[in-house]
């Protein structure tokens, strides 16, 4: 997926759509809304779930506290285990940043104790 907006434009958009909060120092800024679109269109959800919650053995949980950005992009570019390869040709660094921003933006889920069905286990 080619990134459709240049970084400067993205930063401009971010001012409108909101930049992800509480990013680690090393994580570049990204476009949350675009990251959400990419998360579906590039098939991330197939193995990691629509909210990046992880789907058991197919893909680990990514949100709301993903691995550090360096590890995140390394797993895309030089994947281990069953992770598919995502080169910069199919997912630019900017797209990766946007997806990472989307993962960071995920709200923290409520506690299991607050969900009656789960509290029974």
């Amino acid at each position: 997926m080619q990134r459709s907006i240049i970084l400067s434009a993205a930063l401009a958009v971010l001012s409108l759509t909101g930049t992800a909060q509480a990013q680690p120092a090393a994580a570049p800024a990204g476009n949350v809304a675009h990251g959400k679109t990419l998360f579906t269109s590039t098939g991330c959800y197939q193995c990691h779930g629509y909210q990046g919650q992880g789907l058991g053995t197919t893909g680990p949980k990514l949100a709301p506290t993903p691995m550090p950005y360096e590890a995140f992009i390394r797993q895309l570019r030089k994947p281990r285990d069953a992770m598919p390869l995502y080169t910069s040709k199919v997912m630019s660094d900017g797209d990766v940043q946007d997806i990472y921003a989307y993962m960071l933006s995920m709200p923290k889920a409520k506690a299991a104790a607050d969900i009656p069905l789960l509290s029974r286990f």
Binding site: G49, Y50, Q51, G52, Q53, G54, L55, G56, K61, A63, A109, K110, A111, A112, I115, L117, L118, R120, F121
Partner: peptide, 26 residues
């Protein structure tokens, strides 16, 4: 740990597997 992991996507549509299996267990 499993219960804590089950909360993510709990209200999602399409329905998550933890939600489906929990509803069935209930």
């Amino acid at each position: 740990r499993a219960k804590a992991g089950a909360v993510y996507g709990w209200d999602d549509s399409p329905i998550s597997m933890p939600r489906l299996t929990s509803e069935l267990w209930n």
